Simulated scan of single mutants.
Amino acid sequence: MARKPDGPLRKGWTTGACATAATRAAWQAMLSGQFPNPVTITLPRGETPSFALVKAETGDGWARASVIKDAGDDPDVTHGAEIIATLRHGKPGNGITFHAGDGVGRITKPGLPLPVGEPAINPKPREMMIGQITELATEFNVPTDVEIEISIPGGQEIATKTWNPRLGIVGGLSVLGTTGIVIPFSCSAWIHSIHRGIDVARATGRTHVAGATGKTSEAAIRTFYDLPDEAILDMGDFVGGMLKYLRKNPVEHISICGGFAKLVKLAQGHLDLHSSRSQVDFDRLAQTVKHCGGDAMLQDATRTANTAKQVLEQCQAANVDIADTIARQACESARATLDGATVVEIVITDRDGKIIARHSPGDFDTFRPSVKK
């Protein structure tokens, strides 16, 4: 995750807002013969941003407009992408239909807000575009039989940096955004993807999912249980966002896998594990060392340690098994958040991806026919 810069941050616009602006411009050109430039739209909360056009092209029965996405100061992979709307007159009575152009994905798995086979243009952006089409159709007294094709050049390559392939969205990016506004470093897109991952897992019949803090722990838990893509959640630091959604949308079993330092934070009650938003309490960790049988010298070393990794190494050198205790405490913290909706397992890995501790109430393996004994 990119580091948040100091000072005030500039907001940006979602792909959905950009697609809506391009759609309005193209539709207005089809009806009036002229492109508005800049083009102004009204967002769901009443904001009225204006967008400069990059493309403004017309032909027999069609028009095309595009804008460049400005995500503000958010580290959005789609920042700077060109969002293109190509509109064509549809068959009478067909109404407004949506189509995926180059770089926009198509849905191949159930559990997402749209049916399998649909272009990955989310419901709220569709609603925004329909609003613009309807408004201008009323003004010009014409029917709303329109085909809207959204394209994002390079979107298929950009999508490899997102969760789309894992969610079963193939061929490109999704057109997203519920408010039209990108709040810098809000991490809303990440948490949204965790939620959609849970939806897909449930819809595809998965009874065991896993959330990992990073690539090393993800590889470890995936290999240990031989899990498919749709069972892996890109949890990152947002264990709270994952657990709270699972509480309302449960699966039978969840494995939470990560390094020692991250899971110490969970054990101490933190639900956001990012270093800028939670810190290890070394005095409290020293109490855990004492509980595990560590002597006074090891407890003092824990209080003055620079990192949790250092504490783990000191405990391992002293034959004090702190990892198992941290796994148990983290499990208790997660269970309190889940409120009994899902059986949880904690898996701690070292930096090489070796599993050094596992804990779950009861024998978690008895629930998992795919576990490698």
Rank of each mutant, 00 (worst) to 15 (best):
D272N: 15
T342H: 05
M297H: 12
D272G: 11
A323I: 02
T302D: 05
L298W: 01
T307I: 01
V344C: 15
C292L: 02
F282Y: 12
L338G: 11
T325A: 11
H291A: 15
Q279E: 14
D324V: 00
A286L: 02
I326G: 07
G340C: 10
R303N: 09
T288M: 14
N319M: 07
A330I: 01
A317Y: 01
R335G: 05
T304A: 13
D281A: 13
T325P: 00
Q299C: 13
T307L: 05
T288S: 11
R328S: 11
R335K: 13
N319W: 00
G293Y: 06
H291T: 15
D272Q: 12
V264I: 15
T307Y: 01
L298M: 02
A336W: 00
S276K: 09
Q310A: 14
G294D: 07
T337P: 01
V311I: 09
D283Q: 07
L271T: 14
A261C: 06
A334G: 11
D283F: 08
V264A: 05
D272S: 13
H291N: 12
S333K: 04
R303E: 10
A341G: 07
D283R: 02
A286I: 03
K290C: 08
F282G: 07
R303D: 06
K265N: 01
K290T: 14
G258Y: 06
C292E: 08
A318T: 08
D272T: 09
Q279G: 07
E332K: 13
T342F: 03
C257H: 03
A286P: 02
G294E: 10
T342G: 04
G293R: 03
K290D: 14
G258V: 08
E332W: 01
G269T: 10
G294H: 01
T325I: 12
L312R: 04
A261M: 09
H270F: 09
H270E: 13
Q287R: 13
A341S: 15
A286Q: 00
S275A: 13
T302I: 11
L298I: 09
M297T: 15
T307F: 00
C257E: 09
L285I: 06
D272F: 07
A336D: 15
K290G: 08
Q279K: 15
R284N: 13
S275H: 04
A308N: 05
T288V: 15
G294R: 02
T307S: 11
S333F: 00
V343W: 09
K309V: 11
V344P: 06
R335H: 08
G259W: 00
G259E: 05
V343H: 14
A341C: 11
D295K: 03
L263A: 04
G258P: 06
V280E: 02
Q287K: 12
L271Y: 10
S278Y: 00
H291C: 05
A267C: 05
Q268H: 04
A341I: 01
D295N: 15
L338H: 09
Q329H: 08
Q314W: 10
M297S: 14
V320Y: 03
Q329F: 07
G293L: 09
A296Q: 12
A334Y: 08
A296P: 00
G293D: 07
D283E: 14
Q316R: 14
K290S: 15
A305P: 06
Q299K: 01
L273M: 11
C292I: 08
V289E: 09
H270T: 08
S276L: 12
A267V: 05
F282L: 05
E313P: 04
M297E: 15
N319V: 08
D339K: 13
A341E: 13
Q279R: 14
C292N: 12
